[in-house]
Simulated scan of single mutants.
Amino acid sequence: MITLKVNGRDHRVDAEPDTPLLYVLRDHLALNAAKFGCGLGQCGACTVIVDGKAVLSCVTPLVLLEGKQVTTLEGLGTTADPAPIQRAFLDEQAAQCGYCIAGMMMRAQALLMRNASPSDDEIRGELEPHLCRCGTHMRILRAIRRAAGLMNRAELAPESGADR
C-alpha cells in the first residue's frame, strides 16, 4: 500500500511501487483528465503537477511520489467554479479534439505558478513537449496569456470582507 496525496486528499493505493502514476489516477482514483497518449513520456497528454512542477505521469512510478503533492486538472477547479486556466481555455475555445488539452493546461498552470507573466517565447518553450495536431495553437497561447491576466488580477484584488 502506498499513500498518495492527490488534489489535497490522501489516498491509500494498493499498487506496485513501479506502477505509473497515470494508471493509478485513472484506474484507482477515477481521475480521467490525464490521458494515455504514447506511454513513453513523449506527447504530454498525461501531464500533472507534482510539488509545483509539470510531470509526465505515464513514466512516473508511484515510488517517487510518497510525501509529494499531486495535482490533476480535476484539482484545479470545477465546472461551476473553474480555475483561471480552465476559464481561459474555455473563453478562448482553445480545444479542438481536446485530447491533449488537459496536459497543456497542467503544464501552463505550472508555468504560471512560477512565472506570473511569461512571454510568448516562454509559453512556447514550456509547451514544446506537447504534441497537438488540431491547429488551435494561437488560441492556446491567447488562453495562457488570458489566464495569466486573470491570475494576476485575482492576486491584486483585495479579499472580500477583509475590511469588516
Rank of each mutant, 00 (worst) to 15 (best):
F89M: 03
D163H: 13
G103F: 03
R133Q: 03
L90G: 11
C58V: 10
R107C: 12
P17Y: 12
P84R: 06
R124T: 03
V6L: 09
T3E: 10
E159V: 13
Q86H: 11
H137D: 01
E16R: 15
C38Y: 05
K53E: 15
Y23Q: 12
G135Q: 07
A34Q: 07
L127A: 07
L21Y: 00
I85T: 11
D81G: 01
L4W: 04
I2C: 08
M104E: 13
P61K: 07
V24M: 06
Q42R: 14
N32K: 01
A95R: 10
L64P: 00
G8T: 14
N152V: 04
A108I: 01
M104Y: 03
M105H: 03
A154Y: 04
E74F: 01
P129W: 06
R26A: 12
D120M: 04
E92H: 05
A108D: 00
G39Q: 11
P118T: 04
M106Y: 05
A45E: 11
G44I: 09
R26L: 10
P82Y: 05
Q96E: 08
C38V: 02
L40A: 10
I123G: 10
L31P: 06
C97P: 13
Q42Y: 06
V50F: 08
L56Y: 10
F89Q: 07
L73W: 01
K5G: 00
K68H: 14
V59Q: 03
S117R: 14
E92R: 12
H130T: 14
L131H: 11
T71R: 11
T71E: 14
N115Q: 14
E159Q: 11
R114N: 03
I85G: 10
S160W: 05
P61A: 10
H130L: 13
P82M: 03
A154T: 07
A108P: 06
N7K: 08
L31M: 14
A80K: 11
I144G: 08
